[in-house]
Design a protein around this nucleic acid. Structure first.
Length: 561
DNA sequence: CGCATTCGCCAC
DNA sequence: AAACGTGGCGAATGCG
């Protein structure tokens, strides 16, 4: 049973449809304020809410203490289906571009102007009517999935993506517990007492003085790479940039304070007092995830740098009194995903019951874990040089199926063809200029220089498609993992979201659940069970395992990584 | 002056 | 020692 929500004539209609998309009764009219209560009254295990954009509908439900079990996020699903190679021959694929192809425009709480306040007082303006009919769109999508070449995979992908949208909305709502006092103590310790924006904190100023002294340049601005580079060269140091890894190699008294300055300066600018003021309210950081925000299907984050939360500040993430965090990280997720999607039994065996890189060493392909890791990442990223590049051929001999899969993806990309993830998310193809340049280079008046440049660009696109298939399928595994965990937790704790264990953070292959201490063991068990679910959903009975490292901690900084 | 680009670091 | 994927973000710098 589906209930399709639609804003029309100043209110909301809920249209019941069968699973096949056929009418299952008359639409019900609800007024906007009554929507959360309506959703609460009608949510059920067999109900799937259909709406244009989860971020536009779900926050009000959550704010009222409600939640839903399942949904279809039409905008996210449209984007997947529109691009999917497997749905290329469908009516949807041939339909002209319309508003469903536009990015989401969730109701952003913009500050109303005086004029708006005046209008609102007069007319009590609610959200505008929806331009497009979600029932029509939903049926178009059902048809696209059913008539695609891989209906099962696309059904799973769109379901997982929609579940992801629910998770993202719930994390935004609940927020990550954040102790501003702990964070402030850390800042004071690293930088000195708090200073106004634009003023260099004491510890940084001391380091700046040291740097200037060592370089004999009293006017040096250590925040200016150009300035620092000039000064380093004037001091006789041969460097091509001021990057950390390059400076680390040098022997000079300025290097230590300079690296120290860069490290602390980064803390100040990325997660200093300004960040704390802007992003932490009432003891919570509310990460706004963008589901499918990365081409590969990975999530992105909008503001606050949620996907790049430095290890150094994670100690400020402290569970509420009587609560704990269950932190779980999928070990060597991408190579395991690659082994499974390629059906590479040798690689699956390497990862069975142990660290996968240790297993690669045990297979005899390479000598050390470090080599195994470097070569494996190199194979998935397309390394051609250095240690990794040299070792990739040895992996190719040991694991021909897995390496063959990424190589085929790379070659398709080099030809300008799309590639797909396991469930059918499809890569973009290069723009017209890419093809035009290629054709020009290989025409009768193409020059060798043009041909070299074009080959370089082709290899670069090939590295993108090589990685796309693995990164994108790993993102699908993570969606399935979170989706399954979410359902498991909701089944056991059906009340308001934040009254029981709930997801509060996610980074590609790692999740954090905030839970009452007494339920931590149950949560840890469910997190592991959900990982098994995800493996089965994607790879059925292929013998690949997805081990997790799970820790129960009071603060995120204490989690094993 | 605002906007775009570059540099460099953070995460996976 | 650094070349090998996906991103966000902030300060400095370049440009119209």
């Amino acid at each position: 049973m589906h209930l399709v929500l639609h804003r029309v004539d100043g209110g909301v209609t809920a249209t019941p449809l069968t699973d096949a998309g056929e009418s299952a009764g008359e639409p019900t009219r609800v007024d906007e304020p009554g929507l959360p209560a309506f959703v609460a009254a009608h949510d059920a295990p067999d109900v799937r809410w259909v709406w244009d954009d989860t971020a536009r509908w779900y926050p009000a439900v959550l704010a009222a203490g409600g939640r839903v079990g399942r949904c279809v996020d039409l905008r996210l699903c449209r984007r997947i289906l529109r691009g999917a190679l497997a749905a290329r021959g469908t009516v949807l694929a041939a339909a002209p571009v319309d508003t469903w192809d536009a990015p989401g425009q969730e109701a952003r709480p913009t500050r109303p102007t005086q004029a708006r306040l005046f209008d609102d007082a007069l007319f009590a303006v609610g959200p505008a009517d929806d331009a497009a009919d979600p029932v029509t769109e939903f049926r178009l999508q059902l048809d696209a999935i059913a008539t695609s070449t891989t209906p099962g995979a696309l059904r799973l992908l769109t379901t997982a993506e929609s579940a992801g949208a629910l998770v993202a909305a719930e994390i935004l709502h609940a927020g990550l517990p954040w102790r501003a006092d702990v964070h402030e103590r850390l800042l004071e310790q690293e930088l000195g007492p708090r200073v106004p924006a634009g003023v260099r904190p004491r510890r940084l100023e001391e380091l700046a003085v040291e740097i200037r002294t060592h370089l004999g340049d009293p006017g040096l601005n250590p925040d200016s790479p150009a300035d620092v580079l000039r000064a380093l060269r004037a001091a006789g140091l041969m460097v091509s940039s001021t990057r950390k890894w390059e400076l680390q190699e040098l022997e000079h008294p300025v290097i230590a304070p300079l690296l120290e300055y860069k490290k602390r300066s980064r803390l100040l600018t990325a997660n200093g007092w300004a960040w704390l003021d802007e992003w932490v309210q009432d003891g919570r950081f509310h990460p706004k995830y963008v589901v499918g925000g990365v081409v590969t299907g990975r999530w992105a984050a909008d503001g606050g740098g949620a996907m790049q939360l430095p290890k150094t500040v994670r100690s400020a993430v402290v569970a509420d009194e009587g609560w704990a965090f269950v932190v779980a990280d999928a070990a060597q997720l991408e190579p395991r995903v690659l082994a499974a999607m390629a059906g590479d039994r040798a690689m699956a065996t390497a990862g069975d019951g142990r660290d996968l890189y240790d297993g690669v060493v045990a297979s005899g392909a390479v000598e050390t874990r470090q080599q195994a890791k470097g070569a494996m990442l190199g194979a998935m990223y397309g390394a051609t040089q250095g240690d990794a590049g040299r070792l990739v051929p040895r992996l190719a001999r040991a694991f021909p199926a897995a390496l063959g899969l990424v190589d085929r993806a790379a070659r398709a990309g080099e030809r300008g063809e799309p590639v797909t993830t396991l469930l059918g998310r499809t890569s973009p193809v290069p723009d017209e200029a890419w093809f035009a340049a290629r054709n020009r280079a290989w025409s009768v008046d193409g020059t060798p220089a043009q041909q070299r440049a074009v080959e370089g660009r082709a290899r670069s696109w090939g590295r993108f498609t090589r990685n796309f298939v693995v990164q994108g399928t790993a993102a699908e595994w993570a969606l399935a993992w979170m989706g399954s965990l979410r359902t498991r937790l909701a089944t056991r704790f059906p009340g308001p979201l934040t009254a029981g264990p709930h997801l509060v953070f996610f980074v590609h292959d790692e999740i954090v659940v905030h839970t009452p201490v007494e339920h931590a063991a149950f949560v840890a068990e469910q997190v592991r069970a959900a990982a098994v679910d995800a493996g089965r959903l994607l790879f059925r009975d292929f013998p690949v395992v997805f081990p997790l490292s799970v820790s129960t901690v009071r603060d995120y900084g204490a989690a094993k990584d």
